[in-house]
Design a protein around this nucleic acid. Structure first.
Lengths: 342, 342
DNA sequence: CTGAAAGCGCTAACAC
DNA sequence: GTGTTAGCGCTTTCAG
């Protein structure tokens, strides 16, 4: 079933069918109806591959992310999908699962071919060299959730103030009177959470609160990693009254570890983190966290890709997302009565 | 940059380049290397749209689901993506967000055109009529996570024993000595969880445990819906010692509602459900649940699509997934000491 | 082992 | 308003 069949069936030329289907050119209402009727009766659907080939424009965009089961990504993907739909694009999703090769081969095959452009939402290290290469070939590429506004990646990106988010979290703890604050960072010191860590250090220094290197743990960006790191940290430093965690997912692990160790939260220990994923409000107690504009960054990432294709954005474009906001739930409280429950 | 450019650069015909790139035909090692060198130096990537057009075969499959932020779906999508990759296919994801129209327009546009086939993982009602229509046009279509092995949908599907899963859950409660068991169902009585509900009723009837209609609540398949339903149920029936929930997500809401009402779990109330999504083991207490073979169903769904395209499966193919398994965590306990904590 | 011709299904550009 | 021609980038077919 091709456009030619429909044209013959309707007694018109293929061009007329094409025009009717895309609302282009001028077609009399009568032939329009005849064509539409033929399309309907034959159950004709245009071949989007053929259309993409001749239009040099694919109806899809690609989204690359590192771990779809991390609740942050579904929330991001939801908004990205919605935004793509607004621009009449479908979304090809590649879950790299932290495997660099998978991301690479996806980019090589899909970018600029099956999909017009690629949005990389890699929390963990994006393959910058490859992205710049694609870009140099004229393929629209953008990064969303870029955490280092001062270090642009050489690829257009959407950033947010990760350092400021961490500062908000720490200031909240300090405001509650906490004096012995530990940190669980969901990456290596130089890893993806380095801006959040920097914000933590800055705010701690300014507040004059004691902050020993021994009170810090660097680990992975997962529930289990946070759980293990917190057990280790709290065992070594039972005098801590609060823990800053760089991300919600490990923070939920921290919460559970503390409860397993017999802490009452927030009575004996406060926990604060960054992101505000859905599970943060479903835990017990609810997780106090600094919300980042996830949906906004997804939408702006897609929009950036569209702008790029229209020539209205360049390699150095940096889109700033809204400021993070503190969301106070049950996991933080006054330091006054903080003490280990034994 | 087209295959023609590369051919000229390498001093061969386009056909030789095509053959080298796809490891087809016979090409001498020397020309092969020359072609590969040219491809490398020019940074050439084949246009997959053009290839798809002439091969009448797209390198993508489509996955349709209803709510990507429901943790079940990312887990499903992860496995589906992996399975698709094994078959050298990329995955186009459509999140219908429970909007029927969005699913429809996705199917109409993408199925059989951008993607060769469609896997529908709609927990909630799949658009069966539309799927059958596509199927009748020769487009491979399959449903995964079909819950009614006895009522095949007229489209090839992957099923699991939902009724048996519910029975396992109830038998677990009965085995613990519970006599007053309530139910929170994450759909309407005739909705998507009807097989689970039927299993609940059957097992209850066999066990001779008291089961009043007043002890049942039908609600939505979300955390909040489960929370609200449980508050309502427990307020009306404070004598219940256990609740069967048809799905983990609302069960987590039930857990929270009970805790908010002052119940100790599992001391005063046991909660059991079905699925075993990741958050089930991260809650406090951990959620006792009947695990269903999510990843297996995703993999088999994709495999079914592939079989369909190869003509090795038909409209009536029903693939049975492994049996559900009870996973005992902290949310269920002996009924002996069950009583309301006031 | 390599190449030339034909055409996948569609649309841009231009005729009528 | 509508039709004709050319060709998107690639692979299939078949000739050398």
């Amino acid at each position: 079933m091709t456009i030619k069949d429909v044209a013959e069936y309707a007694g018109v030329s293929v061009m007329t069918v094409s025009n009717v289907l895309r609302s282009r050119g001028r077609v009399s209402e009568e032939t329009r109806q005849r064509v539409l009727g033929a399309v309907e009766r034959q159950g004709y659907r245009p071949n989007l591959n053929a259309r993409a080939l001749v239009e040099r424009r694919s109806p899809t965009l690609a989204l690359m992310l590192s771990c779809i089961t991390n609740p942050f990504y579904p929330e991001f993907a939801l908004a990205a999908n919605l935004s793509a739909l607004k621009h009449e694009r479908h979304l090809l999703v590649c879950n790299t699962d932290h495997e660099v090769d998978r991301g690479m081969s996806f980019l090589e095959q899909v970018a600029g071919s099956l999909s017009d452009g690629v949005l990389v939402a890699n929390y963990s290290d994006p393959p910058l060299a490859e992205l710049r290469l694609l870009q140099s070939r004229g393929i629209p590429v953008a990064i969303s959730v870029w955490e280092l506004p001062d270090e642009p990646p050489g690829v257009p990106c959407v950033t947010f103030d990760a350092k400021g988010a961490a500062r908000l979290a720490v200031e909240h703890l300090v405001g509650l009177g906490h004096l012995r604050i530990g940190a669980v960072i969901g990456s290596s010191k130089q890893g993806i959470h380095r801006a959040r860590y920097a914000g933590f250090r800055e705010a701690m220094a300014e507040s004059k609160v004691r902050c020993l290197k021994a009170d810090e743990r660097f680990t992975g960006d997962s529930f289990d990693a946070g759980y293990a790191a917190a057990k280790n940290l709290l065992t070594a430093r039972p005098d801590l009254t609060a823990i800053f965690v760089s991300n919600d997912l490990p923070a939920l692990g921290v919460l559970n570890a503390a409860l397993d160790l017999g802490y009452l939260i927030p009575k004996n220990l406060s926990v604060v983190s960054i992101t505000d994923i859905q599970p943060a409000r479903q835990s017990r107690p609810g997780l106090t966290t600094v919300a980042i504009p996830t949906a906004e960054m997804a939408e702006k990432g897609i929009a950036l890709l569209i702008e790029l294709m229209a020539g209205r954005a360049s390699e150095t474009t940096v889109v700033q997302a809204s400021a993070p906001k503190l969301i106070i739930r049950g996991s933080t409280g006054s330091a006054a009565v903080a003490q280990r429950c034994t």
